[in-house]
Structure formats: structure tokens, C-alpha cells
């Protein structure tokens, strides 16, 4: 009896999953498979855009492609820096918004605004903010006497990378703080009261109660933001287009240039495949690592 019930339940489960699985297959599996296939061909202006089977040539070419490795490095620096900063600031904002004070509702709404704005708009705005002639950042620094002459923010490698990180942090911190705020609100207040009676300082309560109980939300926010930041395209395209001299060129921007500007479809497909594999690997490692962290803090 129970086994038939179980099989029936399992069948219902698969039935319910089917639409999502089909959708995933169409949206994810097919493009990936197609890219994999395409990456085995040479299809560019040199072949007059006709596919010529070349096996793994594209991958061999990639291993010696300095621009590719530079873009991987840029992407990694951008991802790690922006996600870390966003987590720290997002946590701070979430902690503040979790307190009760007059006008909290209005401030919560305002805080989410940057997340709701179109990225292209944000990119343009920040490009102006960091503009070397008319930008407000230089203006403020000059007035404060911190610099003698305006910095060409978007025209120098390191400042350019810094600028896009700042813009990305500004845009996506609200997302993290809202996610963390939801988590904070699910922690019962009497745990903090019990902990205070146990003799804990606010900082100890943060470490021993808030952080471990917030770990699921931190985990989700990190993984989600990691995937997003690793594929960053629009913000950087608008602000620097990957410049100067490829200093802010991320993998997505390089792929875009390869396919859309150089019309090198075969090589572009190979880049997509490798990026995909890197992303999946890093995500898997991060997920594993973070769940270990969670278990460790949880067991304490």
C-alpha cells in the first residue's frame, strides 16, 4: 500500500516539476549545448562566416590569449571586491533598518530605490560623477584640498576599476540589505533578551546570535550576487566599455566584443563555454565552503 502511495506521490512530483524542467532545458541547456557545439568550429571573417570544423583549436588559442586571462582576473577582482563590500555595508544598513525609529517605513522604501533604477541610467550617472572635468567626486576632493589636480578616474586602470566597483556597490547593496533585513526580522527578539541576561554584549550577540541565524540569508545573498557580478556587463559597458586598455574588461564584455565586433563566433562560443564551467565550478566550491562555514558556526 505504502509503496504504491509513494510511487504515486513521486509521479505527481515529477509531473509538477515537468514544466520547470522543460523551461530550464530550453532556456539553459539548449544554448549551452549549442555553444559547446559551435566552439568546435572556426566561424569568423577569415572563413567568410562559414563554420569550419577545427576540433579543440579554439581552446588551445584561448590558453595563450592574454586578453582572456586579463578579463578573468578583472572579473574576479570586481566580483570579490564588490560582493564583500556589499555584504558588509548591506549588513550595516539591514541592522539599522531593523531598529524601530520614526519614519522607518519611508526610509526602507528609499533604501531600495537604487536597486529599482535601470542599470544603464545608473552607469551613465556614475560615469558623470567620476568624470575628470565635470565630475562631482573630483570637485569634492579638490575643494577639500585632498588632491591638487583632478583625477582621471575612468581613464586610468586602477581608478576605473574602483569606479565601477563603487557604482555596482551603490546599485546592489539595497538588494542585500533587504534580503538580510528579512532574515533579521525572523530572529525572535527574546533570543537577544535571553542572551543579554546571559551577560552578552551587543557585539557578542551579533557574533553568536545574529550571524549564525542569518547565515542562510548571507549564503543566498552571496551566491546570488556572485553569479550576477561574475557576469557583469551592462554597468561596465556604459561606464568604461571595458577600458582603459582593457583594465575593466570583464569576461562578458570580452565575449561581447569577440562575437559582436570581431564576428568571431566560434571563439566566442568557446569563451562562453569556459566561462560557464568556471562559474559553475566556483559556485559549487563556494556553496560547499559556505555550507561548511554555516555548519561550523551553527554547531558552536
Amino acid at each position: 500500500m505504502s509503496s504504491t502511495l509513494e510511487t504515486r506521490e513521486r509521479r505527481t512530483g515529477w509531473l509538477l516539476l515537468a514544466p520547470a524542467l522543460i523551461l530550464l532545458a530550453l532556456v539553459y541547456a539548449y544554448p549551452i549545448a549549442r555553444s559547446l557545439w559551435l566552439s568546435l568550429f572556426n566561424q569568423n571573417l577569415g572563413t567568410e562566416l562559414q563554420p569550419v570544423f577545427t576540433g579543440l583549436d579554439n581552446y588551445v588559442r584561448m590558453s595563450g590569449d592574454g586578453r582572456f586571462w586579463q578579463s578573468i582576473l578583472n572579473t574576479s577582482v570586481f566580483t570579490v571586491a564588490s560582493v564583500l563590500i556589499e555584504l558588509v555595508i548591506g549588513m550595516g544598513i539591514a541592522l539599522v533598518l531593523n531598529q524601530s525609529f520614526p519614519g522607518r517605513g519611508a526610509i526602507r522604501t528609499i533604501a531600495i530605490l537604487p536597486w529599482a533604477l535601470p542599470t544603464a541610467l545608473i552607469g551613465t550617472t556614475w560615469a558623470w560623477i567620476f568624470n575628470d572635468q565635470a565630475g562631482i567626486v573630483n570637485d569634492i576632493l579638490l575643494r577639500l584640498g585632498l588632491i591638487e589636480t583632478g583625477i582621471n578616474w575612468l581613464g586610468n586602470p586602477l581608478p576605473a576599476l574602483l569606479s565601477v566597483i563603487v557604482a555596482d556597490v551603490w546599485k546592489t547593496t539595497p538588494f542585500i540589505s533587504i534580503l538580510l533585513l528579512a532574515g533579521l526580522q525572523s530572529i525572535p527578539g527574546d533570543l537577544y533578551e535571553a542572551h543579554a541576561i546571559d551577560g552578552a554584549s551587543p557585539w557578542q550577540s551579533f557574533r553568536q546570535i545574529t550571524l549564525p541565524l542569518l547565515m542562510p540569508q548571507i549564503l543566498v545573498a552571496t551566491l546570488f550576487r556572485f553569479a550576477q557580478a561574475f557576469g557583469i556587463f551592462d554597468l561596465i559597458q556604459v561606464m568604461t566599455s571595458g577600458g582603459p586598455g582593457g583594465a575593466t574588461e570583464t569576461v562578458s564584455i570580452y565575449i561581447y566584443a569577440t562575437v559582436m565586433r570581431y564576428l568571431d563566433f566560434g571563439y566566442g562560443a568557446a569563451l562562453v563555454v569556459v566561462t560557464f564551467v568556471v562559474l559553475v565550478l566556483v559556485m559549487a566550491i563556494a556553496a560547499f565552503f559556505l555550507s561548511k562555514v554555516r555548519a561550523a558556526t551553527g554547531d558552536r
Partner: peptide
């Protein structure tokens, strides 16, 4: 004095047990 400095112990109606810690902890 703060709650932690009073050397009192309290049992809450909701028990307020730390869900991520073992009974021992």
C-alpha cells in the same frame, strides 16, 4: 545596571532557546 550585570536568570514563556546551539551550549 544592564541585564547581564545583575546576575539574574530568567525563564521565558517562549523558552527563548538558541536554535542553532545544542542543549549543552
Amino acid at each position: 545596571k544592564s541585564a547581564g550585570d545583575r546576575n539574574i536568570a530568567m525563564v521565558f514563556q517562549s523558552y527563548a532557546l538558541y536554535p542553532h546551539m545544542s542543549v549543552y551550549d
